[in-house]
Design a protein around this nucleic acid. Structure first.
Lengths: 211, 211
DNA sequence: CCGTGTGAACAAATTCACAGCC
DNA sequence: GGCTGTGAATTTGTTCACACGG
């Protein structure tokens, strides 16, 4: 499946949610599901699910619904989840160490292959079975071992510099945990993980609530 | 400032980004900034910034721009960030422990006041200076000490049960780290932190790239 | 002259509603 | 009869462009 230029980003962002839910349903033995039922499960409208899927093809059977296994496989193919993706981690402070020991990436085919830090006291140590290299060796490392994705877990002050190095050396996607708005070139995908921002927009609605 | 009903969620989600950037600019000594310059900093259009702010009032000076300090303070007030918010954490596995030791919440006024787990071997232990209670005592705890926000860091299988308990006992916002789409009642705010989903939508764009 | 604030114009996303097929 | 797939209608969100004030 090619990357269709016309598919909105919001649609792409929902596909992994569908895929994950289908995997869960399959593990429970469910074989067929309608857009209505899947929508109930996820809290979205059935029309949205059908419209989203229609960007990529026709996966359902009229009068019946979708084959859970088949649709799950199709979505994983569309998203490019059939291959393994390599990632480098930059920053092994508190956050970086938690990311290294996080058990959620590997089963989904996302593999951290190297870790880097700028602080001399961390370099050479081993964290979660992974040796920590100097960030100065990152360009050289990426030249000999290109990685698909870079994870940034450094301070806000250093994050843009790290992003520049990653992009300059062929990384095509960045998962940013630093609390700063990074600027990356066109053609580089950037996703931010920001629990604090999530809380800060939530409080707008909470403050009005009478206890 | 009241919670205006007509303000789109997307606008609310951008305000913390503006607030954070203004705080950074202020710490660098910047006193005045135009929507153009702020937009350049963040990668958004100046019109969007002005329109977003216009939902809440008039904060700028024509011909000059915005006072960095003043606009930052206004945004924090609008978002409800002048008060401290209390949070309970449920689940002290790998992820929960990382959340407990995360240093980013407290400086922004988000305080974890208690931690809970369902596994007997964890109950009674101390993690990051915080005693771990049985999740069975969560309802009772919330009755005597209401919390604003619940953080869910349990398995996907248990997350909905935990969310139900939190909502039933007065929690008005949930920050969910479990890889599952939770359903909560109207009037409860839910934000999901899902690095794996972020990666899985990113790969849609990466797979097409020629190396 | 510069940059805000804002209706108006435009674009994007969602939902509707129904023809078509199982 | 039930449910998909999809144009059309509607809603939501973004950008334009300019009157106005400093």
């Amino acid at each position: 499946m090619m990357t269709l230029p016309g598919v909105p980003q919001v649609v792409i962002d929902r596909l992994p949610v569908y895929a994950r839910t289908l995997a869960m349903l399959k593990s429970k033995g469910r074989q067929v599901i309608s857009s209505q039922e899947l929508g109930d499960e996820l809290g979205v409208t059935p029309a949205q699910i059908r419209k989203d899927l229609s960007y990529f093809g026709r996966f359902g059977k009229q009068g019946r619904g979708y084959n859970v296994q088949r649709l799950g496989t199709e979505l994983r193919r569309i998203l490019g989840l059939e291959q393994e993706w390599t990632m480098v981690l930059v920053g092994v402070g508190n956050l970086g160490r938690a990311i290294l020991s996080y058990r959620g990436f590997a089963p989904e085919g996302f593999k951290i292959v190297a870790a880097f830090d700028m602080h001399s006291e961390k370099i050479g140590t081993t964290v979660g079975g992974m040796k920590v290299h100097s960030v100065k060796s990152l360009p050289q490392y990426l030249k000999s071992s290109p990685a698909d994705i870079g994870i940034i877990a450094v301070s806000a002050a250093s994050a843009q510099d790290v992003a520049n190095v990653l992009v300059d050396h062929g990384v095509k996607g960045i998962l940013n945990y630093a609390p700063v708005a990074l600027r990356v070139s066109e053609g580089t995908r950037l996703k931010n993980i920001e629990p604090v921002l999530a809380l800060q927009s939530m409080t707008y609605y909470l403050k009005g609530v009478v206890p």
